[in-house]
């Protein structure tokens, strides 16, 4: 992670000097995270892609304001989160389900694949019932590897609040996902 931060810092400095190829690499490194974070806020995949793109372009425009002494990823994700929240405010929330169009092939048995698909479906539904902050916190922490402190900084909230939101999110997910295996039997 340390090397990644250092690489990101160098790429960000090059990009801030106008190097589009350097920024292209940063987008390649963090584009998938940006999409997932936006989708955790917006539910709709197309809206999430629009927001992630808006955020990534906004970050490019304002790269000169990035402090290279600090890690790049939380700075970038803060902009993506703001773009997603802005889009959520501007658009009426469409009650479409989150899309996972191409369920990755796992190479597992058909039973395991079926169970995995059921878990994904259940997780989509469970996430949709969580408040936005809890969805965001559990995604950033468990899926994207952000620290509590980074999430707190990114959300402008105390670290204790982040821990509490994470606790509630995990408990709700455990309650809603826990029965899948029993249902499979």
């Amino acid at each position: 992670m340390r090397n990644r931060d250092a690489d990101d810092g160098e790429l960000a400095q090059a990009a801030a000097a106008g190097d589009q190829a350097a920024y292209g690499l940063l987008v390649e490194h963090h584009g998938d995270t940006a999409r997932r974070v936006a989708l955790s806020i917006l539910h709709d995949e197309h809206d999430a892609d629009d927001a992630a793109q808006d955020g990534l372009v906004a970050a490019w425009r304002s790269l000169e304001r990035f402090d290279p002494a600090r890690p790049f990823r939380p700075w970038l994700m803060r902009i993506v989160v703001n773009a997603a929240r802005d889009l959520a405010r501007r658009r009426s929330v469409r009650q479409t389900e989150m899309v996972s169009p191409d369920a990755p092939a796992t190479g597992a048995s058909p039973e395991q694949d079926t169970e995995r698909a059921l878990l994904r479906d259940r997780l989509r539904r469970a996430l949709a019932t969580l408040p936005e902050r809890q969805r965001l916190v559990v995604t950033l922490f468990d899926a994207e590897g952000f620290s509590h402190a980074e999430i707190a900084d990114l959300m402008g909230a105390p670290e204790g609040t982040v821990r509490s939101e994470l606790f509630h999110a995990r408990r709700a997910l455990r309650d809603q996902l826990g029965t899948v295996r029993e249902e499979m039997r």
Binding site: D32, R35, R36, L39, S40, E45, A48, D49, M98, V99, S100, P101, D102, A103, P104, R116, L119, R120, L123, R124, L127, V138, T139, F141, D142, A143, E144, G145, R163, L166, F167, H168, R170, R171, L173, R174, L177, G178, T179, V180, R181
Partner: peptide, 26 residues
């Protein structure tokens, strides 16, 4: 998946992997 521990201060790799699978767009 019933093994999610809300109190665990460490990351939950199983939950993280499932979240990434679920949220990754095409």
């Amino acid at each position: 998946m019933s093994g999610i521990n809300p109190f665990d201060p460490e990351r939950d790799p199983a939950l993280g992997a499932l979240l990434r699978e679920t949220l990754t767009g095409a």
